[in-house]
């Protein structure tokens, strides 16, 4: 079992959790992830390792409540434990001295991009961070990212914080005004990643995106996470999760991510109904079944 040692609400429905997993915490690198399984009936799902503390033997993950599993994870408290945590998985992000690097994070993708920003900063790069969310209340890690960035731009869909608009707006603007980036990295929703790829493509800037397709085992065994990159089949779990954005078939990625949408909705609805029933005291025995 892997006990939860810290839990913090970063934004409405966005949580930070620090979990004791000493073997995973030994030396994970930026860009790597861990696979979680909450309990005996749980599914396996990947979460990016946002931070780690090798001495304390902990890893920190950030997640947004979107489906049943993330909702259940959010319902766990400090002192409770997760059945399974395995990692670090995936290929670490390429960290080197590139020069000028633009780092774009959208929504919960900010948590994925943060360890990379820190590592790139430590490698001597000049960092321009561009963070976006639906609204200001959903932003997090802004201070932490500001501390390791030369320049930070904030965007919200509703304009409640920073500029109103998309993270790609400022990226286009900067590029049009003649700014040079040796590299662009991005994590966030697939449409955002695709938009970033289109913005940088004409400039020929190496653009690396972090993908999160459906995964099961996370060791390259099942092929569920296959993505087409440059016309070739890649497994996000062992070949990724970072890929050259100009080569990724985003259309296919989006379709495959929706592959179980109907069943995922069903699971979530059932989970919500159960929560409501519990709240109304209908299930005093704490039984899982309705």
């Amino acid at each position: 079992m892997y006990p939860i040692v810290r839990k913090e609400g970063l934004a409405p429905s966005v949580w930070l959790m620090e979990v004791k997993a000493p073997l995973v915490a030994r030396q994970p690198k930026a860009g790597q992830f861990a696979i979680f399984r909450l309990n005996e009936t749980g599914e396996r799902f990947p979460l990016t390792i946002a931070r780690h503390d090798a001495r304390a033997g902990t890893i920190t993950v950030v997640f947004q409540e979107v489906g049943k599993s993330t909702r259940q994870l959010a319902s766990l408290e400090v002192g409770q434990a997760i059945a399974d945590v395995v990692g670090p998985l995936g290929v670490p992000s390429e960290i080197a001295h590139f020069g000028e690097v633009a780092c774009l994070g959208g929504g919960v993708g900010i948590a994925f991009i943060y360890p990379e920003i820190a590592a790139l900063h430590n490698a001597g790069n000049r960092i321009t961070s561009i963070l976006g969310a639906r609204s200001g209340s959903l932003l997090f890690f802004v201070e932490e990212i500001s501390a390791v960035s030369e320049e930070v731009h904030i965007f919200t869909d509703d304009g409640s914080k920073g500029h109103r608009g998309m993270v790609t707006d400022i990226l286009s603007e900067l590029l049009e005004s003649g700014r040079h980036f040796q590299r662009v990295i991005a994590a966030g929703p697939v449409p955002m990643l695709r938009a970033v790829a289109e913005v940088t493509r004409p400039y020929g800037i190496t653009t690396i995106v972090s993908l999160d397709p459906i995964m099961v085992d996370g060791t390259g065994m099942c092929g569920a996470c296959r993505v087409t990159v440059g016309g070739e089949r890649k497994f996000a779990c062992v070949d990724g999760p970072n890929f050259d954005a100009h080569q990724v078939d985003f259309e296919e990625l989006m379709r495959r991510k929706r592959g179980f949408a109907q069943l995922e909705r069903q699971a979530l609805e059932q989970c919500l109904a159960l929560e409501r029933a519990r709240a109304e005291g209908l299930l005093q025995d704490g039984s899982r079944r309705l």
């Binding site: 009936t41 599914e43 599993s69 099961v216 085992d217 109907q262 069943l263 699971a267 899982r288």
Partner: peptide, 19 residues
């Protein structure tokens, strides 16, 4: 794997789906 390891045949009691 979905069925044997994750018990997708018992969805939604088990969380792993299979269509």
């Amino acid at each position: 794997t979905r069925v044997n390891l994750m018990k997708a045949h018992l969805f939604p009691e088990y969380d792993t789906p299979i269509a």
